[in-house]
Structures are given as C-alpha cells and as structure tokens.
Computed example of a mutant assay.
Amino acid sequence: LKGAYKTVSDIFYRTTPCRSVTPPVYIKKSSLNYNRRTMDACFSAFDKNSDGYLDLEEFKLLTRALFRNDRGKIYNLEEDKLREIFNVFDCNADGYIDREEFVFCWNHWIKIIVRPIAAFLIVDVQNDFISGTLNISNCSAQQNGLEVVEPINHLLDTVQFDVVFYSLDWHPSNHVSFIDNIGQREIHPSSPVTAENAQTYDTVIFAGPPPMKQRLWPRHCVQDTWGSELHKDLKVVENSIKVYKGTNPDVDSYSVFWDNKKMTDTTLCAQLRMRNATDIYICGLAYDVCVGATAVDALAIGYRTILLDDCSRGVDLLDIEKTKNTVIKNNG
C-alpha cells in the first residue's frame, strides 16, 4: 500500500498531464491489444451504474480490490488518501474519472501494482571491498562485506526477478578517488585538507573546473584486476547484466545510475526502461556509499525502491543510519 501510494505521489509531482501520456513504447502490439481489453474490462467492472464514468464510490471499490492480500484481507485507504489519489486521475476536476482519464490511471498506477516488473540490482560485491585494498571491515563500522554473499545468493535461488543487474566499480589507474593520485590534480584553495596533509577517507576539493569535492579512498577496483572482479562465491545468474561505473578518471561514481556530477549516465537507465521495470531491489557494498546513492537516485527517478538491509554492509554506522532514514523518508 505504501509503495502504491508512492507511485501516485510520483505521478502527481513528476508526470505531464494525463492526456499527453502514451502507452510504453517497448510493449508489443499484441500485448497492447491484450492490455486494452483487460483495461476496458476493469473499467466496466467498477462502473457499477454503466454511465461511462467512475465516481468516488466506484473508485473506492476499485482500490478495495487492489489493496488486499492473498487471503482476501482488505487494506482500506484513509478517506483523505483516497480522495487525493482520485483527484490525481480526475484530470479535468469534474468529480469523475472518464475512460480517457482511466487510461492514464491504468498505465501509470493499476498496472504497476498488479503486474510489477522487478529488477534486482547487486551493487559492487567485488573482491577489493571484501578482502582487498578497500576491505570495508577495516572501516569504522567494521562490517564484514562477505556476509552479503549468502543472503544475496538465497534471493537469487528463491525469487524470480524479471532482470538481475550486477554493478562493478571499474576505475582506471589514474582515478581521482585514489589517495595515491592526489598529486596529479590541483587542490582548490577552499579545500579543508591540503594535498600534503591528506589521509585516506579525508574529503578534499579539487580545483576543477568546476571545483569538486572528493573523498579519498585506497586504490581499489582497478579495471581488469583481481580486486575488480565479483567475489567468487557470489552467484552470477544466466542472462544477467553487468553495469560498469567509475570509468571516467576525473569524476567518481557512487550511484549505478550516474557519476557524482551527473554528467554521464551508465547503461542502467536505458536497460530498466527497455524492460519497463517498476520495482528495484537494491543491495550490496557499501550501504552508505554506492548502495545508498543508487537507492536515492532510483527513488528520485520514480521507481518503487527496496533497499535490502540484510544484504548490504557499510562503512560508517552513522552514515548507514542516515542512508536508511533518507530512503524511508522518500517512501522507499
């Protein structure tokens, strides 16, 4: 129910008026015909007086059918929430949802609820973060990165996700985040730490242009090295997709969607759109860095986002808690 309400909030704040929305471009024509028949049948089933419109009471019956568990228990919407959702789809504010408005409601809400397409995104479960140069157990939270492998494998064995992604930090040897490369770039005068005094995990400001904050890490996940490989015990499923990030030497990339300056995206956005994904389950390493940044971006784009707590480990306990609170605050 919370996820469904988030979807409505995203529609209200992020989409164009309903009459400009067209069906997803990646659906086959035969699927569109089936989708239209199913949609029309749904509308007719709840148009109790057959007047060609859904009023608030008829819409309430529809939500009662949507929000129930497999035992038939109904999760009732509060009256103000019900009216708020109804008003989102009543585009002309005449107090009714007509068939044209229902097309928007169907494609952007009902279908997502009843036929979700789930992506599983496993973030950076690589050797260097588990037992290599940036072993997160050496960070302040002292969490063991290897502990994510077993629960992730269990999910891969027991849950039929529609698509599985593995992201990999994939840095060139001259990457900006490596502390041993700090002498390769000019430090901005406003930087709180000088190049001479910088230590691992400090944050400096490089001159750019433009000036750019950068946390300094040990050299890690250099392209085509053992440290950049996925851990040997992590199950890699057939037909999964690998997404490489952090390939630009001059900008870091925590999120699997974009680099930290949002100048360049990865292949993830296009891959998710191509599959009409609605829900993203995210986990891996590190909770408060790349996993968290990816979850926040997924929420901002509008995906229903689930951060899997027991399949993630992080660097700093305070930052882990902040990440968790940020995701929850944004309806993740």
Rank of each mutant, 00 (worst) to 15 (best):
V8H: 02
S9P: 00
S9G: 06
D10W: 08
F12H: 10
F12R: 09
Y13A: 02
Y13T: 14
Y13W: 12
Y13H: 13
R14K: 15
T15H: 09
T15C: 00
T16S: 14
P17W: 12
C18L: 03
C18P: 05
R19A: 01
R19Q: 05
R19V: 00
T22L: 10
T22F: 02
P23E: 14
P24H: 14
P24F: 13
V25S: 15
V25K: 08
V25P: 13
V25W: 15
Y26W: 06
I27L: 06
K28C: 01
K28G: 01
K29G: 00
K29A: 05
K29Y: 05
S30M: 04
S31H: 07
S31F: 04
L32H: 12
N33H: 09
Y34P: 00
R36W: 07
R36I: 10
R36F: 13
R36K: 11
T38N: 06
T38H: 04
M39V: 00
D40I: 14
C42V: 11
F43K: 07
F43I: 04
S44D: 11
D47Y: 03
D47R: 05
D47A: 08
K48T: 13
N49Y: 00
D51R: 03
D51W: 04
Y53I: 02
L54M: 09
D55Q: 02
D55T: 08
L56M: 14
E57Q: 09
E57Y: 06
E57S: 14
E58R: 00
E58V: 10
E58H: 01
E58L: 01
E58D: 07
F59N: 08
L61D: 13
L62I: 08
L62A: 08
T63C: 10
A65H: 09
A65T: 05
A65V: 02
L66I: 15
L66Y: 13
L66Q: 04
F67D: 09
R68P: 02
R68M: 15
N69E: 10
D70W: 10
R71I: 13
G72N: 09
G72V: 15
G72W: 13
G72I: 15
I74H: 02
I74R: 05
Y75N: 12
Y75W: 14
N76W: 08
L77R: 06
E78T: 05
E78N: 12
E79T: 09
D80I: 14
D80E: 14
K81I: 11
R83T: 11
E84P: 10
E84Q: 12
E84T: 15
F86G: 03
N87T: 07
V88S: 02
F89R: 07
D90W: 03
D90H: 08
C91F: 03
C91S: 13
A93T: 11
D94K: 13
D94P: 02
D94N: 13
G95I: 08
G95S: 03
Y96W: 06
E100H: 05
E100A: 13
E100P: 00
F102D: 04
V103T: 14
V103N: 15
F104V: 00
F104H: 06
C105H: 03
C105Y: 10
W106R: 03
W106P: 00
K111S: 15
I112W: 11
I113W: 10
V114M: 01
